[in-house]
Design a protein around this nucleic acid. Structure first.
Lengths: 137, 137
DNA sequence: CTTAAACCTTCCCATCATGGCAAGGTCAAG
DNA sequence: CTTGACCTTGCCATGATGGGAAGGTTTAAG
């Protein structure tokens, strides 16, 4: 299977497949006599794995670790769970941060009459830092 | 005021101040005879404005627009509110997406015993795409 | 058989906000 | 006058992704 076919079958672009190989996430694909990369079902499977993990928001580093665990049929599920738990924690922290932003902003939007007049609580807040409601840092 | 002082007063690094100038977000600072950039209170104010807007998650494009509106004392608050509303919408969409990820992942974590045994619902899901609960795309 | 389309290969560049580093000019305090 | 703390510009790197060029291969149609 050529790289294009693998791309089609996995939903990962050919470009990204080469990239994943370049950064060591995937083992180098065997080459055919014409130097084309050759993929099998197993590789398509790994590509789909990567794609799904990306969709769940895992970082490339986390995916690297998950892939290694996945390839190791004797891995302890403990490891996998640890990574997933850490990621859930990450997600929750980012969600909380964004919710704080959205809340502050929604308050400001509510306070702004939003017509032709120039006075605007949103700009006032940005200028003066009224809601010094720091979300992190 | 030198760039370092402006950086200290605003919380924006000197590096980023130059960058903002380079990309046209800030007007080029006047130079002193020694070619040093010279800043005043007003500039520090703008830098703080930018910093606060970043903290609220506005994109650089949005900040550019907000800055222009801020400088225009006759702006209609309608414009400002529109930008802020759009950004709140953005935030909410991203929050929903991340919540969907976190939910799926939390379920998988709950299903994984997380011990020495190799079988793991988390990997199974990634491999087979059990929860084809697409979050976007 | 020739040609064109559709592949493949590698390599370079761009994004975006940010940081790091280097080489060289300037200024203030000792 | 030296030292150290500034300033200047410019280049490189990040990380995931896409764009595109230049050149080789395969395939299908003429």
């Amino acid at each position: 299977m050529n790289i294009g076919a693998a791309a089609g079958a996995s939903g990962v672009t050919a470009k990204m497949i080469r990239h994943y190989e370049a950064i060591g996430l995937l083992r180098p694909a065997p080459r055919r006599p014409n130097d084309y990369r050759d993929y099998g079902e197993r590789d398509v499977h790994e590509l789909r794995f990567i794609k799904r993990a990306r969709r769940l928001g895992f970082s490339m580093d986390e995916i690297g670790a998950l892939l290694m665990l996945w390839r190791d049929r004797a891995r302890p599920s403990r490891e996998v769970r640890r990574i997933a738990e850490a990621h859930v924690g990450d997600l929750q922290a980012r969600i909380a941060e964004m919710q704080a932003m959205a809340k502050t902003l929604a308050q400001l939007v509510r306070a702004c009459h939003g017509d032709d007049r120039p006075d605007c609580p949103i700009l006032d807040d940005l200028a003066l830092g009224g809601s010094e409601n720091r979300v992190s840092e």
